[in-house]
Design a protein around this nucleic acid. Structure first.
Lengths: 166, 166
DNA sequence: TATTGTTATACTCTATAACTATA
DNA sequence: TATAGTTATAGAGTATAACAATA
């Protein structure tokens, strides 16, 4: 509580509101598509996509928790659902017995492939339709630094127990 | 399933992912701030802010439901919470007996004022810090048409049949 | 002791459908 | 009949804290 003047000019305010509104609507539409096309929540889709992107098809729980915003117990819950559905498997990590390695299964990849086209279609039709190629490039150029800034600011998933340096 | 080429180029994909990630992190931070500073969920804050912005301090339930994405029952639930907390009042509309008019109370305005500085500080520090004034203007210029487009797209259940040129 | 992950639990939120009442 | 809103209910998702196991 020092010298930060808390105010947003009208342009900032508009950008902020539009950002929230746009992603809210987009998320809503995408979640519906994922649910209908493949019985997946958005978080589950993100996890599957992340695993599918990995060269090994695997990630440690902690890495997934850092990538996806939520808490560890939340990740355990979601990973449990995915495992129950046969889309991933969990196994102790070879190098560190404390860690759990999550790996996407063939069924998981299949499910991902089933869902992806519709997903892309929604995003394409809803988000990118009114944007030219140049627009998209500009947008990407604006968002990347913001993302980096947010990522570098506070550690997320590992909730600091007691005194958290700040 | 034939002529729809569902694909996003790398730039689009990056923009999409960054958009989701950025708003996810932002939302998370903002929700925490709102909760700590004023016992408000984000939806509740949006409702209060919308009412506070109105010249009359009032809106019909339907208008609020249209503004905030969720279902009517969800709005009833949230409005109930706000009313229980004394931040809004509900009354039958004078002109249309079916409608309910929601009005922000003085306590609601006070709460809003308590929460707003911290809210703006979070948004400012997290979203706008890495962006210049020009950047923000460009961003706003990109988001506005997207928002309009999304708002004007009525049903998105299962109508992916459109392939215009690209 | 610190880290990784799980479990138990409690709670918030959202959606669906049935219902009331007004137009 | 159509619209506005509420209620009941059921389910998904998240966070917190306590816990066990490994480093």
């Amino acid at each position: 509580m020092s010298d930060t003047p808390p105010s947003l000019d009208p342009v900032q305010l508009g950008a902020y509101f539009d950002l929230i509104e746009v992603t809210s609507l987009l998320r809503h539409a995408v979640e519906q598509q994922l649910r209908e096309a493949g019985e997946l929540s958005y978080v589950q889709f993100q996890l599957l996509a992340r695993l599918g992107d990995s060269p090994t098809g695997s990630h440690r729980m902690t890495d997934l928790a850092d990538g996806v915003v939520y808490s560890r117990s939340g990740l355990t819950y979601q990973a449990g659902l995915l495992e129950k559905a046969g889309l991933v498997v969990r196994a102790p990590s070879p190098d560190d017995e404390r860690s759990t390695t999550v790996t996407i299964t063939d069924a998981g990849r299949t499910r991902l492939a089933e869902v992806l086209p519709g997903h892309i279609e929604v995003v394409s039709g809803l988000l990118f339709e009114p944007l030219s190629r140049d627009d998209v490039e500009v947008l990407a150029g604006l968002l990347a630094p913001v993302r980096d800034h947010m990522r570098s600011t506070p550690p997320r998933s590992a909730a600091p127990r007691r005194r958290s340096g700040r």
